[in-house]
Simulated scan of single mutants.
Amino acid sequence: MRSALHRVVRTLRGVRWYLRELTDESAYDRYVAHLRAIRPGAPVPTRRAFERMRTQRQEADPRQGFRCC
Protein backbone atom coordinates (compact mmCIF):
# COMPACT_ATOMS: atom_id res chain seq x y z
CA MET A 1 0.00 0.00 0.00
CA ARG A 2 2.78 2.38 0.89
CA SER A 3 4.64 1.85 -2.37
CA ALA A 4 1.45 2.53 -4.36
CA LEU A 5 0.94 5.80 -2.49
CA HIS A 6 4.57 6.68 -3.06
CA ARG A 7 4.17 6.09 -6.81
CA VAL A 8 1.04 8.26 -6.94
CA VAL A 9 2.75 11.10 -5.08
CA ARG A 10 5.82 10.82 -7.31
CA THR A 11 3.65 10.87 -10.42
CA LEU A 12 1.73 13.93 -9.22
CA ARG A 13 4.98 15.74 -8.50
CA GLY A 14 6.17 14.93 -12.01
CA VAL A 15 2.95 16.24 -13.52
CA ARG A 16 3.21 19.42 -11.44
CA TRP A 17 6.83 19.92 -12.56
CA TYR A 18 5.90 19.34 -16.19
CA LEU A 19 3.01 21.80 -16.11
CA ARG A 20 5.13 24.47 -14.40
CA GLU A 21 7.82 24.08 -17.05
CA LEU A 22 5.30 24.02 -19.88
CA THR A 23 3.62 27.25 -18.77
CA ASP A 24 6.96 28.83 -17.74
CA GLU A 25 5.64 29.29 -14.22
CA SER A 26 9.05 28.24 -12.88
CA ALA A 27 10.89 31.09 -14.64
CA TYR A 28 10.72 33.30 -11.54
CA ASP A 29 12.11 30.54 -9.32
CA ARG A 30 15.00 29.96 -11.74
CA TYR A 31 15.68 33.71 -11.90
CA VAL A 32 15.76 34.06 -8.11
CA ALA A 33 18.11 31.06 -7.77
CA HIS A 34 20.37 32.50 -10.48
CA LEU A 35 20.37 35.96 -8.93
CA ARG A 36 21.23 34.61 -5.47
CA ALA A 37 24.05 32.48 -6.89
CA ILE A 38 25.59 35.29 -8.93
CA ARG A 39 24.91 38.27 -6.61
CA PRO A 40 24.08 37.09 -3.09
CA GLY A 41 23.54 40.59 -1.71
CA ALA A 42 21.38 41.94 -4.52
CA PRO A 43 17.73 42.69 -3.80
CA VAL A 44 15.33 40.15 -5.30
CA PRO A 45 12.46 41.71 -7.28
CA THR A 46 8.92 40.69 -6.51
CA ARG A 47 7.21 38.23 -8.83
CA ARG A 48 5.13 41.09 -10.24
CA ALA A 49 8.22 43.20 -10.96
CA PHE A 50 9.92 40.19 -12.55
CA GLU A 51 6.95 39.55 -14.84
CA ARG A 52 6.87 43.24 -15.80
CA MET A 53 10.61 43.20 -16.63
CA ARG A 54 10.21 40.02 -18.65
CA THR A 55 7.25 41.37 -20.61
CA GLN A 56 9.04 44.64 -21.37
CA ARG A 57 12.13 42.75 -22.51
CA GLN A 58 10.04 40.52 -24.80
CA GLU A 59 8.17 43.46 -26.30
CA ALA A 60 11.38 45.40 -26.92
CA ASP A 61 12.96 42.48 -28.82
CA PRO A 62 12.05 42.68 -32.52
CA ARG A 63 12.71 38.93 -32.91
CA GLN A 64 9.66 38.19 -30.74
CA GLY A 65 7.32 39.22 -33.55
CA PHE A 66 3.88 40.72 -33.36
CA ARG A 67 1.91 40.20 -30.17
CA CYS A 68 -1.81 40.70 -30.34
CA CYS A 69 -2.51 40.51 -26.60
Rank of each mutant, 00 (worst) to 15 (best):
M1Q: 08
V8F: 03
R2I: 10
A49M: 15
R13E: 07
A60M: 08
R7I: 01
P43G: 03
L35N: 04
W17D: 15
E21I: 05
R13Y: 04
V32F: 11
R13F: 04
S3Y: 13
Q56M: 07
R16K: 12
R52H: 14
I38P: 00
Q56A: 11
R30V: 02
C69V: 10
E51H: 12
D24C: 09
R52D: 15
L35Q: 15
P40M: 03
D61S: 13
R16P: 00
V44W: 07
M1T: 09
F66Y: 13
L5F: 04
I38T: 11
T11G: 13
P43S: 11
M1H: 11
H6Q: 11
R52S: 15
P43Q: 09
V9S: 06
A49D: 15
V8S: 03
T23A: 00
V32S: 09
L19W: 12
E51T: 12
Y31T: 00
P43M: 03
Q56L: 13
R48V: 06
V44G: 05
E25L: 12
D24T: 10
Q56F: 05
R48N: 05
M1I: 03
R20H: 06
A49R: 15
V32I: 14
S3T: 14
D61I: 08
P45E: 09
P62Q: 02
T46H: 11
R30S: 01
C68P: 00
S26A: 09
R20I: 00
A27W: 01
R67Y: 01
R10E: 05
V9R: 13
A37V: 01
F66W: 12
A33C: 00
V8E: 04
V9L: 10
R57Y: 12
E51A: 14
P40Y: 02
L19S: 11
A42Q: 14
R20T: 03
R7K: 05
C69A: 11
E25N: 06
L12M: 07
Y18F: 15
T23I: 00
C68V: 02
R10F: 00
R48D: 10
G14Y: 06
T46C: 08
I38H: 03
F66A: 13
L12W: 02
R48G: 08
R2Q: 09
A27K: 03
R57T: 14
A49H: 14
V8K: 04
V15P: 01
Y18C: 08
D61P: 12
L35G: 07
L35F: 00
T23D: 00
V15L: 15
R13W: 03
A42W: 07
S3E: 14
G14C: 04
G41C: 01
S3D: 14
Q58Y: 02
R36N: 13
V44P: 11
R39L: 03
H6I: 10
L12A: 07
P62V: 02
S3M: 12
V9I: 12
L22C: 07
Q56I: 02
R20D: 08
